[in-house]
Design a protein around this nucleic acid. Structure first.
Lengths: 215, 215
DNA sequence: AAATCAACTACATAAAAGGGTAGTTTTGAA
DNA sequence: TTCAAAACTACCCTTTTATGTAGTTGATTT
Protein backbone atom coordinates (compact mmCIF):
# COMPACT_ATOMS: atom_id res chain seq x y z
CA UNK A 1 0.00 0.00 0.00
CA UNK A 2 1.48 3.31 -1.06
CA UNK A 3 1.94 5.66 1.83
CA UNK A 4 0.48 9.12 1.59
CA UNK A 5 3.28 11.49 2.50
CA UNK A 6 2.01 14.60 4.20
CA UNK A 7 3.66 17.88 5.05
CA UNK A 8 1.97 20.40 7.32
CA UNK A 9 2.77 24.09 7.29
CA UNK A 10 0.95 25.96 10.03
CA UNK A 11 2.22 28.47 12.54
CA UNK A 12 -0.12 27.57 15.35
CA UNK A 13 1.53 24.86 17.41
CA UNK A 14 -1.71 23.42 18.70
CA UNK A 15 -3.34 23.07 15.31
CA UNK A 16 -0.14 21.70 13.90
CA UNK A 17 0.29 18.99 16.50
CA UNK A 18 -3.41 18.19 16.53
CA UNK A 19 -3.47 17.60 12.78
CA UNK A 20 -0.26 15.68 12.90
CA UNK A 21 -1.54 13.27 15.52
CA UNK A 22 -4.89 12.92 13.77
CA UNK A 23 -3.31 12.06 10.47
CA UNK A 24 -0.64 9.81 11.94
CA UNK A 25 -3.33 7.50 13.20
CA UNK A 26 -4.26 6.54 9.68
CA UNK A 27 -2.14 3.59 8.80
CA UNK A 28 -1.53 4.65 5.23
CA UNK A 29 -0.67 8.24 6.14
CA UNK A 30 2.70 9.44 7.25
CA UNK A 31 3.46 12.98 8.30
CA UNK A 32 6.87 13.63 6.80
CA UNK A 33 7.38 16.94 8.51
CA UNK A 34 5.66 19.96 10.00
CA UNK A 35 6.81 23.54 9.62
CA UNK A 36 5.70 26.81 11.10
CA UNK A 37 6.53 28.90 8.07
CA UNK A 38 6.89 28.62 4.32
CA UNK A 39 10.49 29.74 4.55
CA UNK A 40 11.42 26.73 6.66
CA UNK A 41 9.43 24.38 4.49
CA UNK A 42 10.96 25.61 1.27
CA UNK A 43 14.45 25.00 2.56
CA UNK A 44 13.66 21.43 3.42
CA UNK A 45 14.03 18.57 1.03
CA UNK A 46 10.94 16.95 2.45
CA UNK A 47 8.44 19.14 0.64
CA UNK A 48 9.76 17.71 -2.59
CA UNK A 49 8.73 14.29 -1.42
CA UNK A 50 5.27 15.20 -0.22
CA UNK A 51 2.11 13.83 -1.76
CA UNK A 52 -0.09 16.24 0.11
CA UNK A 53 0.72 19.61 1.63
CA UNK A 54 -1.60 21.16 4.18
CA UNK A 55 -0.97 24.86 4.08
CA UNK A 56 -2.27 27.57 6.33
CA UNK A 57 -3.07 30.80 4.54
CA UNK A 58 -2.42 33.28 7.31
CA UNK A 59 1.28 32.77 7.75
CA UNK A 60 3.84 35.38 8.72
CA UNK A 61 6.50 36.10 6.17
CA UNK A 62 5.70 34.34 2.92
CA UNK A 63 1.94 34.01 2.85
CA UNK A 64 0.23 30.74 2.25
CA UNK A 65 -0.83 31.89 -1.19
CA UNK A 66 2.66 32.80 -2.29
CA UNK A 67 3.84 29.66 -0.56
CA UNK A 68 1.48 27.49 -2.58
CA UNK A 69 2.92 28.91 -5.75
CA UNK A 70 6.49 28.32 -4.65
CA UNK A 71 5.79 24.81 -3.45
CA UNK A 72 4.04 24.08 -6.71
CA UNK A 73 7.20 25.14 -8.50
CA UNK A 74 9.50 22.82 -6.65
CA UNK A 75 7.02 19.95 -6.41
CA UNK A 76 4.37 20.16 -9.11
CA UNK A 77 2.85 16.84 -8.14
CA UNK A 78 2.08 17.92 -4.59
CA UNK A 79 -1.61 18.22 -3.81
CA UNK A 80 -1.85 21.47 -1.96
CA UNK A 81 -4.80 21.92 0.36
CA UNK A 82 -5.26 25.32 1.92
CA UNK A 83 -6.63 25.75 5.38
CA UNK A 84 -7.95 29.13 6.33
CA UNK A 85 -10.03 30.95 8.87
CA UNK A 86 -11.04 33.46 6.25
CA UNK A 87 -13.10 32.76 3.19
CA UNK A 88 -12.89 36.02 1.34
CA UNK A 89 -12.51 36.06 -2.42
CA UNK A 90 -8.88 36.97 -2.26
CA UNK A 91 -8.03 34.00 -0.08
CA UNK A 92 -10.08 31.54 -2.04
CA UNK A 93 -9.34 32.60 -5.57
CA UNK A 94 -5.80 33.61 -4.84
CA UNK A 95 -5.15 30.12 -3.49
CA UNK A 96 -6.78 28.40 -6.40
CA UNK A 97 -4.88 30.54 -8.82
CA UNK A 98 -1.67 29.68 -7.01
CA UNK A 99 -2.37 26.03 -7.65
CA UNK A 100 -4.17 24.76 -4.56
CA UNK A 101 -6.59 21.95 -5.24
CA UNK A 102 -8.60 22.19 -2.06
CA UNK A 103 -9.76 24.70 0.45
CA UNK A 104 -10.82 23.87 3.97
CA UNK A 105 -11.96 25.91 6.91
CA UNK A 106 -9.75 25.84 9.98
CA UNK A 107 -12.59 24.41 12.04
CA UNK A 108 -12.42 21.21 10.02
CA UNK A 109 -12.99 18.10 12.11
CA UNK A 110 -10.43 15.29 12.26
CA UNK A 111 -12.65 13.00 10.23
CA UNK A 112 -13.25 15.64 7.62
CA UNK A 113 -9.55 16.33 7.40
CA UNK A 114 -8.79 12.69 6.77
CA UNK A 115 -11.61 12.39 4.27
CA UNK A 116 -10.44 15.54 2.50
CA UNK A 117 -7.01 14.12 2.00
CA UNK A 118 -8.50 10.94 0.62
CA UNK A 119 -10.63 12.95 -1.78
CA UNK A 120 -7.57 14.81 -2.97
CA UNK A 121 -5.71 11.60 -3.62
CA UNK A 122 -8.62 10.21 -5.59
CA UNK A 123 -8.36 13.16 -7.93
CA UNK A 124 -11.00 15.26 -6.33
CA UNK A 125 -11.03 18.67 -4.77
CA UNK A 126 -11.91 18.86 -1.13
CA UNK A 127 -13.73 22.00 -0.18
CA UNK A 128 -16.78 22.94 1.77
CA UNK A 129 -19.98 23.07 -0.24
CA UNK A 130 -20.19 26.77 0.49
CA UNK A 131 -16.82 27.48 -0.97
CA UNK A 132 -17.70 25.32 -3.94
CA UNK A 133 -20.72 27.51 -4.49
CA UNK A 134 -18.61 30.63 -4.36
CA UNK A 135 -16.31 29.19 -6.95
CA UNK A 136 -19.13 28.11 -9.20
CA UNK A 137 -20.85 31.43 -8.92
CA UNK A 138 -17.79 33.04 -10.40
CA UNK A 139 -18.60 31.22 -13.61
CA UNK A 140 -22.08 32.54 -13.97
CA UNK A 141 -22.58 34.65 -17.00
CA UNK A 142 -24.04 37.97 -15.99
CA UNK A 143 -26.45 39.02 -18.61
CA UNK A 144 -26.04 42.66 -19.45
CA UNK A 145 -28.76 44.35 -17.43
CA UNK A 146 -30.75 45.38 -20.45
CA UNK A 147 -32.05 42.71 -22.75
CA UNK A 148 -31.22 45.00 -25.64
CA UNK A 149 -27.60 44.96 -24.59
CA UNK A 150 -27.11 41.33 -25.50
CA UNK A 151 -24.56 40.99 -28.22
CA UNK A 152 -25.66 39.34 -31.44
CA UNK A 153 -23.99 36.24 -32.84
CA UNK A 154 -22.08 38.35 -35.30
CA UNK A 155 -20.93 40.79 -32.68
CA UNK A 156 -19.66 37.97 -30.52
CA UNK A 157 -17.79 36.53 -33.47
CA UNK A 158 -16.16 39.86 -34.13
CA UNK A 159 -15.26 40.33 -30.49
CA UNK A 160 -13.58 36.96 -30.56
CA UNK A 161 -11.64 37.90 -33.66
CA UNK A 162 -10.49 41.08 -32.00
CA UNK A 163 -9.33 39.16 -28.97
CA UNK A 164 -7.16 37.18 -31.32
CA UNK A 165 -5.47 40.32 -32.48
CA UNK A 166 -7.02 40.54 -35.92
CA UNK A 167 -7.48 43.85 -37.69
CA UNK A 168 -10.79 45.01 -39.12
CA UNK A 169 -9.42 44.29 -42.57
CA UNK A 170 -8.54 40.73 -41.72
CA UNK A 171 -11.87 40.17 -40.00
CA UNK A 172 -13.75 41.65 -42.94
CA UNK A 173 -12.06 39.15 -45.20
CA UNK A 174 -12.90 36.24 -42.97
CA UNK A 175 -16.49 37.29 -42.55
CA UNK A 176 -17.15 38.38 -46.12
CA UNK A 177 -18.06 41.89 -45.09
CA UNK A 178 -16.61 45.30 -45.88
CA UNK A 179 -14.23 46.90 -43.43
CA UNK A 180 -16.94 49.43 -42.72
CA UNK A 181 -19.30 46.59 -42.04
CA UNK A 182 -17.00 45.43 -39.29
CA UNK A 183 -16.81 48.97 -37.99
CA UNK A 184 -20.56 49.11 -37.94
CA UNK A 185 -20.73 46.10 -35.66
CA UNK A 186 -17.83 47.23 -33.53
CA UNK A 187 -19.61 50.51 -32.88
CA UNK A 188 -22.59 48.54 -31.79
CA UNK A 189 -20.48 46.40 -29.48
CA UNK A 190 -19.00 49.52 -27.93
CA UNK A 191 -22.42 51.00 -27.34
CA UNK A 192 -23.79 47.88 -25.76
CA UNK A 193 -20.79 47.33 -23.52
CA UNK A 194 -20.24 51.03 -22.89
CA UNK A 195 -16.61 50.96 -23.91
CA UNK A 196 -14.39 52.88 -26.28
CA UNK A 197 -11.60 50.57 -27.28
CA UNK A 198 -10.95 47.03 -28.37
CA UNK A 199 -8.95 46.29 -25.26
CA UNK A 200 -11.77 47.45 -23.01
CA UNK A 201 -14.34 45.55 -25.05
CA UNK A 202 -12.37 42.34 -24.76
CA UNK A 203 -11.91 42.87 -21.06
CA UNK A 204 -15.61 43.48 -20.52
CA UNK A 205 -16.47 40.64 -22.83
CA UNK A 206 -14.40 38.33 -20.69
CA UNK A 207 -15.88 39.46 -17.41
CA UNK A 208 -19.39 39.18 -18.80
CA UNK A 209 -18.31 35.80 -20.08
CA UNK A 210 -19.37 36.61 -23.59
CA UNK A 211 -16.14 35.46 -25.13
CA UNK A 212 -16.09 31.78 -25.78
CA UNK A 213 -13.35 29.99 -23.96
CA UNK A 214 -13.98 26.34 -24.39
CA UNK A 215 -15.26 24.84 -27.60
CA UNK B 1 -40.89 22.08 7.90
CA UNK B 2 -40.51 23.78 4.54
CA UNK B 3 -41.02 21.39 1.70
CA UNK B 4 -38.35 21.18 -0.96
CA UNK B 5 -40.18 21.50 -4.24
CA UNK B 6 -38.47 19.59 -7.01
CA UNK B 7 -38.93 19.57 -10.76
CA UNK B 8 -37.29 16.93 -12.92
CA UNK B 9 -36.54 17.40 -16.60
CA UNK B 10 -35.23 14.26 -18.20
CA UNK B 11 -36.21 12.53 -21.40
CA UNK B 12 -35.50 9.00 -20.29
CA UNK B 13 -38.66 7.61 -18.70
CA UNK B 14 -36.85 5.13 -16.51
CA UNK B 15 -34.44 7.61 -15.03
CA UNK B 16 -37.25 10.09 -14.58
CA UNK B 17 -39.52 7.75 -12.69
CA UNK B 18 -36.65 6.28 -10.72
CA UNK B 19 -35.55 9.68 -9.49
CA UNK B 20 -39.08 10.72 -8.79
CA UNK B 21 -39.77 7.72 -6.62
CA UNK B 22 -36.44 8.04 -4.85
CA UNK B 23 -37.00 11.65 -4.00
CA UNK B 24 -40.64 11.23 -3.07
CA UNK B 25 -39.64 8.94 -0.27
CA UNK B 26 -38.02 11.80 1.57
CA UNK B 27 -40.68 13.30 3.72
CA UNK B 28 -39.59 16.88 3.18
CA UNK B 29 -39.23 16.51 -0.58
CA UNK B 30 -42.07 16.83 -3.04
CA UNK B 31 -41.73 16.31 -6.76
CA UNK B 32 -43.89 19.02 -8.24
CA UNK B 33 -43.64 17.76 -11.77
CA UNK B 34 -41.55 15.86 -14.24
CA UNK B 35 -41.05 16.78 -17.88
CA UNK B 36 -39.37 15.13 -20.77
CA UNK B 37 -38.23 18.33 -22.43
CA UNK B 38 -37.34 21.90 -21.63
CA UNK B 39 -40.08 23.14 -23.91
CA UNK B 40 -42.76 21.45 -21.83
CA UNK B 41 -41.20 22.58 -18.60
CA UNK B 42 -40.92 26.18 -19.65
CA UNK B 43 -44.62 26.32 -20.51
CA UNK B 44 -45.60 25.06 -17.11
CA UNK B 45 -46.20 27.30 -14.15
CA UNK B 46 -44.66 24.72 -11.88
CA UNK B 47 -41.04 25.51 -12.72
CA UNK B 48 -41.61 28.95 -11.26
CA UNK B 49 -42.43 27.35 -7.96
CA UNK B 50 -39.54 24.93 -7.86
CA UNK B 51 -36.81 25.08 -5.25
CA UNK B 52 -34.65 22.60 -7.07
CA UNK B 53 -34.58 21.66 -10.74
CA UNK B 54 -32.86 18.48 -11.85
CA UNK B 55 -31.94 18.94 -15.44
CA UNK B 56 -30.57 16.47 -17.92
CA UNK B 57 -28.02 17.94 -20.31
CA UNK B 58 -28.59 15.76 -23.33
CA UNK B 59 -32.13 16.75 -24.19
CA UNK B 60 -33.64 16.94 -27.62
CA UNK B 61 -34.80 20.34 -28.74
CA UNK B 62 -33.67 22.96 -26.25
CA UNK B 63 -30.52 21.57 -24.68
CA UNK B 64 -30.11 21.33 -20.96
CA UNK B 65 -27.58 24.14 -21.03
CA UNK B 66 -29.84 26.53 -22.85
CA UNK B 67 -32.65 25.28 -20.67
CA UNK B 68 -30.76 26.14 -17.50
CA UNK B 69 -30.38 29.66 -18.72
CA UNK B 70 -34.05 30.01 -19.58
CA UNK B 71 -35.18 28.49 -16.31
CA UNK B 72 -32.85 30.79 -14.47
CA UNK B 73 -34.53 33.69 -16.18
CA UNK B 74 -38.05 32.79 -15.15
CA UNK B 75 -37.08 31.48 -11.73
CA UNK B 76 -33.82 32.97 -10.54
CA UNK B 77 -34.11 31.36 -7.13
CA UNK B 78 -34.27 27.84 -8.49
CA UNK B 79 -31.26 25.71 -7.67
CA UNK B 80 -30.41 24.03 -10.92
CA UNK B 81 -28.52 20.77 -10.76
CA UNK B 82 -27.36 19.31 -14.02
CA UNK B 83 -27.20 15.60 -14.59
CA UNK B 84 -25.09 14.35 -17.43
CA UNK B 85 -23.49 11.29 -18.86
CA UNK B 86 -20.75 13.42 -20.36
CA UNK B 87 -18.22 15.42 -18.47
CA UNK B 88 -16.52 17.32 -21.22
CA UNK B 89 -15.54 20.92 -20.70
CA UNK B 90 -18.35 22.22 -22.79
CA UNK B 91 -20.98 20.43 -20.74
CA UNK B 92 -19.50 21.36 -17.41
CA UNK B 93 -18.52 24.94 -18.00
CA UNK B 94 -21.44 25.66 -20.26
CA UNK B 95 -23.77 24.54 -17.51
CA UNK B 96 -22.05 26.51 -14.84
CA UNK B 97 -22.03 29.56 -17.02
CA UNK B 98 -25.72 29.10 -17.64
CA UNK B 99 -26.31 29.26 -13.93
CA UNK B 100 -26.30 25.68 -12.70
CA UNK B 101 -25.07 25.26 -9.15
CA UNK B 102 -24.33 21.56 -9.27
CA UNK B 103 -23.23 18.90 -11.66
CA UNK B 104 -23.83 15.21 -11.17
CA UNK B 105 -23.06 12.16 -13.20
CA UNK B 106 -26.03 10.17 -14.42
CA UNK B 107 -24.84 7.13 -12.53
CA UNK B 108 -25.53 8.92 -9.28
CA UNK B 109 -26.93 6.65 -6.57
CA UNK B 110 -30.26 7.36 -4.87
CA UNK B 111 -28.53 8.30 -1.65
CA UNK B 112 -26.12 10.60 -3.42
CA UNK B 113 -28.96 12.24 -5.26
CA UNK B 114 -30.79 12.97 -2.04
CA UNK B 115 -27.65 14.18 -0.35
CA UNK B 116 -26.84 16.38 -3.35
CA UNK B 117 -30.16 18.12 -3.09
CA UNK B 118 -29.64 18.69 0.59
CA UNK B 119 -26.21 20.16 -0.12
CA UNK B 120 -27.73 22.50 -2.67
CA UNK B 121 -30.32 23.70 -0.20
CA UNK B 122 -27.69 24.33 2.41
CA UNK B 123 -25.98 26.72 0.02
CA UNK B 124 -23.46 24.29 -1.31
CA UNK B 125 -22.66 22.99 -4.74
CA UNK B 126 -23.07 19.30 -5.25
CA UNK B 127 -20.63 17.85 -7.68
CA UNK B 128 -18.32 14.93 -7.89
CA UNK B 129 -14.82 15.57 -6.58
CA UNK B 130 -13.47 14.94 -10.05
CA UNK B 131 -15.62 17.61 -11.58
CA UNK B 132 -14.66 19.94 -8.77
CA UNK B 133 -11.06 19.37 -9.65
CA UNK B 134 -11.72 20.20 -13.27
CA UNK B 135 -13.37 23.40 -12.25
CA UNK B 136 -10.58 24.36 -9.89
CA UNK B 137 -7.94 23.59 -12.42
CA UNK B 138 -9.44 26.19 -14.67
CA UNK B 139 -8.35 28.77 -12.13
CA UNK B 140 -4.73 27.83 -12.12
CA UNK B 141 -2.46 30.52 -13.35
CA UNK B 142 -0.28 29.16 -16.07
CA UNK B 143 3.10 30.71 -15.76
CA UNK B 144 4.47 31.74 -19.10
CA UNK B 145 6.82 28.91 -19.97
CA UNK B 146 9.90 31.06 -19.78
CA UNK B 147 10.76 32.75 -16.53
CA UNK B 148 11.84 35.76 -18.56
CA UNK B 149 8.36 36.04 -19.95
CA UNK B 150 6.86 37.05 -16.64
CA UNK B 151 5.46 40.52 -16.82
CA UNK B 152 6.90 43.10 -14.47
CA UNK B 153 4.78 45.02 -12.00
CA UNK B 154 4.75 48.01 -14.27
CA UNK B 155 3.78 45.99 -17.28
CA UNK B 156 0.90 44.44 -15.40
CA UNK B 157 -0.25 47.87 -14.30
CA UNK B 158 -0.19 49.08 -17.87
CA UNK B 159 -2.03 46.04 -19.12
CA UNK B 160 -4.71 46.71 -16.56
CA UNK B 161 -4.98 50.32 -17.67
CA UNK B 162 -5.35 49.19 -21.27
CA UNK B 163 -8.09 46.79 -20.29
CA UNK B 164 -9.90 49.80 -18.88
CA UNK B 165 -9.79 51.50 -22.23
CA UNK B 166 -7.17 54.11 -21.43
CA UNK B 167 -4.93 55.59 -24.11
CA UNK B 168 -1.17 55.72 -23.81
CA UNK B 169 -1.44 59.44 -23.14
CA UNK B 170 -3.83 58.95 -20.27
CA UNK B 171 -1.75 56.14 -18.82
CA UNK B 172 1.43 58.18 -19.14
CA UNK B 173 -0.18 60.92 -17.09
CA UNK B 174 -1.32 58.51 -14.42
CA UNK B 175 2.03 56.80 -14.21
CA UNK B 176 4.22 59.90 -14.51
CA UNK B 177 5.98 58.62 -17.58
CA UNK B 178 6.26 59.87 -21.12
CA UNK B 179 3.97 58.46 -23.76
CA UNK B 180 7.00 56.80 -25.26
CA UNK B 181 7.75 55.31 -21.91
CA UNK B 182 4.39 53.59 -22.01
CA UNK B 183 5.09 52.47 -25.53
CA UNK B 184 8.37 51.02 -24.37
CA UNK B 185 6.61 48.85 -21.84
CA UNK B 186 3.81 47.92 -24.21
CA UNK B 187 6.35 46.66 -26.70
CA UNK B 188 7.81 44.55 -23.99
CA UNK B 189 4.38 43.19 -23.08
CA UNK B 190 3.74 42.28 -26.70
CA UNK B 191 7.04 40.49 -26.97
CA UNK B 192 6.53 38.52 -23.82
CA UNK B 193 2.97 37.52 -24.66
CA UNK B 194 3.66 37.14 -28.36
CA UNK B 195 0.83 39.42 -29.41
CA UNK B 196 0.45 42.43 -31.65
CA UNK B 197 -2.49 44.38 -30.34
CA UNK B 198 -3.99 45.63 -27.12
CA UNK B 199 -7.04 43.46 -27.52
CA UNK B 200 -4.97 40.35 -27.93
CA UNK B 201 -2.74 41.31 -25.02
CA UNK B 202 -5.73 41.76 -22.75
CA UNK B 203 -7.20 38.48 -23.90
CA UNK B 204 -3.96 36.63 -23.28
CA UNK B 205 -3.49 38.45 -20.02
CA UNK B 206 -6.84 37.19 -18.88
CA UNK B 207 -6.26 33.62 -19.88
CA UNK B 208 -2.85 33.61 -18.24
CA UNK B 209 -4.59 35.19 -15.27
CA UNK B 210 -2.20 38.06 -15.19
CA UNK B 211 -4.90 40.68 -15.00
CA UNK B 212 -6.08 41.26 -11.50
CA UNK B 213 -9.69 40.41 -10.95
CA UNK B 214 -10.25 40.34 -7.26
CA UNK B 215 -8.44 42.65 -4.87
C1' DA C 1 37.15 50.86 -15.49
C1' DA C 2 34.61 48.97 -19.11
C1' DA C 3 30.91 46.63 -20.74
C1' DT C 4 26.12 45.44 -20.18
C1' DC C 5 21.51 46.05 -19.45
C1' DA C 6 17.05 47.82 -17.94
C1' DA C 7 14.35 51.68 -18.15
C1' DC C 8 13.41 55.10 -20.11
C1' DT C 9 12.94 59.45 -23.81
C1' DA C 10 12.64 61.00 -28.56
C1' DC C 11 11.42 60.97 -33.35
C1' DA C 12 9.42 59.03 -37.49
C1' DT C 13 5.92 56.78 -40.15
C1' DA C 14 2.57 53.66 -41.96
C1' DA C 15 -1.33 51.45 -40.54
C1' DA C 16 -5.36 51.17 -37.72
C1' DA C 17 -8.89 52.63 -34.91
C1' DG C 18 -12.68 55.79 -33.31
C1' DG C 19 -16.28 58.45 -34.33
C1' DG C 20 -19.40 61.49 -37.35
C1' DT C 21 -22.55 61.55 -41.22
C1' DA C 22 -25.07 59.60 -45.06
C1' DG C 23 -27.00 56.44 -48.29
C1' DT C 24 -28.72 51.58 -49.65
C1' DT C 25 -30.56 47.08 -49.04
C1' DT C 26 -32.98 43.55 -46.07
C1' DT C 27 -36.10 42.19 -43.06
C1' DG C 28 -39.81 41.99 -40.11
C1' DA C 29 -43.95 44.00 -38.21
C1' DA C 30 -48.15 46.74 -38.69
C1' DT D 1 -48.24 47.14 -49.12
C1' DT D 2 -45.91 50.31 -46.29
C1' DC D 3 -43.04 51.83 -42.78
C1' DA D 4 -39.39 51.44 -39.56
C1' DA D 5 -35.54 49.34 -37.94
C1' DA D 6 -31.51 46.55 -38.65
C1' DA D 7 -27.70 45.56 -41.39
C1' DC D 8 -24.79 46.92 -44.02
C1' DT D 9 -21.60 50.11 -47.36
C1' DA D 10 -19.11 54.34 -48.12
C1' DC D 11 -16.45 58.62 -46.98
C1' DC D 12 -14.21 61.78 -44.06
C1' DC D 13 -11.10 63.17 -40.64
C1' DT D 14 -8.57 63.11 -36.28
C1' DT D 15 -6.36 60.44 -32.91
C1' DT D 16 -4.05 56.41 -31.55
C1' DT D 17 -1.35 52.31 -32.42
C1' DA D 18 2.32 49.41 -33.84
C1' DT D 19 6.88 49.32 -34.91
C1' DG D 20 11.53 50.76 -36.17
C1' DT D 21 15.56 53.23 -34.91
C1' DA D 22 18.47 55.75 -31.76
C1' DG D 23 20.20 58.14 -27.75
C1' DT D 24 20.51 58.87 -22.39
C1' DT D 25 20.96 57.53 -17.72
C1' DG D 26 21.72 54.84 -13.72
C1' DA D 27 22.55 50.34 -11.78
C1' DT D 28 24.85 45.86 -12.04
C1' DT D 29 28.33 42.80 -13.71
C1' DT D 30 32.80 41.50 -14.92
Amino acid sequence: MAMVKIVIIEDNVYARTAWESTLSQEEDFVVLATFSSCEEALESELVKKATVVLLDIGLKGISGIKGAELIGNINPKALIIMISIHDDDKSIFGSLQAGAIGFLHKSVSPDELIESIRIAIRGGSPMTPQIARRVLRSFHRFKPMQEKDNLTEKEITILNHLSEGKSYKKISEEMYLSVDGIKYHVRSIYEKLHVHSQAEAVSKGQSLRILTKWE
